[in-house]
Simulated scan of single mutants.
Amino acid sequence: MIRLRALLLINRKSRQGEANAQTAVEQLRDRGVDVLEGRFDAPEDVPAEIRRHADAVDVIVLGGGDGTLNLASKAMMACGKPMAVLPLGTANDFARTLLIPTDLAAACDNVVDGIDHGIDLGLCNDVHFLNVASIGLAVRASEYRSDAAKKWFGSLGYAANVFSAVRDTRAFDAEISFDGHTERLHSIQVAVGNGRYFGGGLAVSSDAALDDGQLDLYSLKPQPLSSLIAMLPGLVRGPHKAMQGLQLFEGTAFHIRTEEPMDINTDGEILTATPATFRVLPQALTVKVPQRYIDRYGSGKSSSAA
């Protein structure tokens, strides 16, 4: 029997990184996987490790959060090898979308037994994103992130940061062009989603999916904090077009202009700004997904919340 060869990339210098890496190596070898451990000093070195070793392995196993996966996405797209995810971050929105288990042993099972599945990648100007790119509230909320908030609030930490940021976020005007027409928005947040979840469990749309060849855009209208709190359950389930206080659009590309350049948060990092063009790159990556994802969604846009 031919043994599966895997490149394992986990930052041993991160919190609990050493223990997670050791456990992952043991779990994978127990499942008959030949493990090649990549060595790197910082997450920014992950793409170089992928390029260095991709030709020698069958699958690349990335342990970390959405930021690590984002950093790896361009190199993964170039090497053409399937990616398997060990969700070791705080939010793990990408893994949540694809129903990849957060339990490390179960995630290692998915490395071996998972099904190769093509997914889309988003592109904002020249920056790739897996989940969501945002303008407005999400940018300000990212400035309030802290290790303490992650520890005590977990996936709710992002929502708490958003509400803290409301008082400091000014409404802005934006012009979006897509599918041959233009919309003018007055907004406190514009989010463009490739995937379903962002911010630790908020959903960009009630039917967003990583494999539908579409981007989902929503604009949140200025409103009192009490109204935003009332909207939170709907933002967790995923907005729909009938939802008050919000505008929702779909397309394969969007162009967004604002009166002044505004920062854009892509998968938690501020790497570009408006004016911006957003595009979807269909089937750009291959990811190991569990059979239950295929059973539930098959391929294409999902019809209910995960």
Rank of each mutant, 00 (worst) to 15 (best):
T102E: 15
H117E: 08
A106F: 03
A91I: 09
L104E: 03
C79H: 00
R39N: 09
L99S: 04
N92W: 12
N125T: 11
L123V: 02
L121G: 06
N70R: 12
K74R: 14
D55P: 00
L62S: 09
M76K: 09
D103F: 15
A48P: 03
D113F: 10
N92L: 13
G122N: 06
G114P: 01
A75I: 08
N11H: 12
T102W: 11
K81S: 00
N110F: 11
R12Q: 10
R12S: 11
L98M: 06
C79T: 02
D126F: 00
V46I: 15
T23C: 09
M83A: 14
E18N: 04
G65I: 12
N110D: 06
A75M: 09
V85P: 05
D34K: 13
Q27E: 15
V46Q: 10
R12C: 01
L98H: 04
G17A: 04
E37C: 15
R12K: 15
A72V: 03
C108F: 02
D55Y: 00
A56K: 13
Q16K: 11
I50T: 04
T102H: 15
A84V: 02
A21P: 01
T23K: 11
V59T: 10
L98K: 03
L121C: 05
L69C: 07
P101T: 10
R96K: 14
H53T: 00
G114S: 02
A91G: 10
G32C: 02
A75P: 02
R51C: 01
V85W: 13
A56N: 08
V33R: 12
L62G: 07
T102S: 13
G80E: 04
V35I: 11
P101L: 14
E49R: 05
D120R: 02
H53Q: 09
V35W: 13
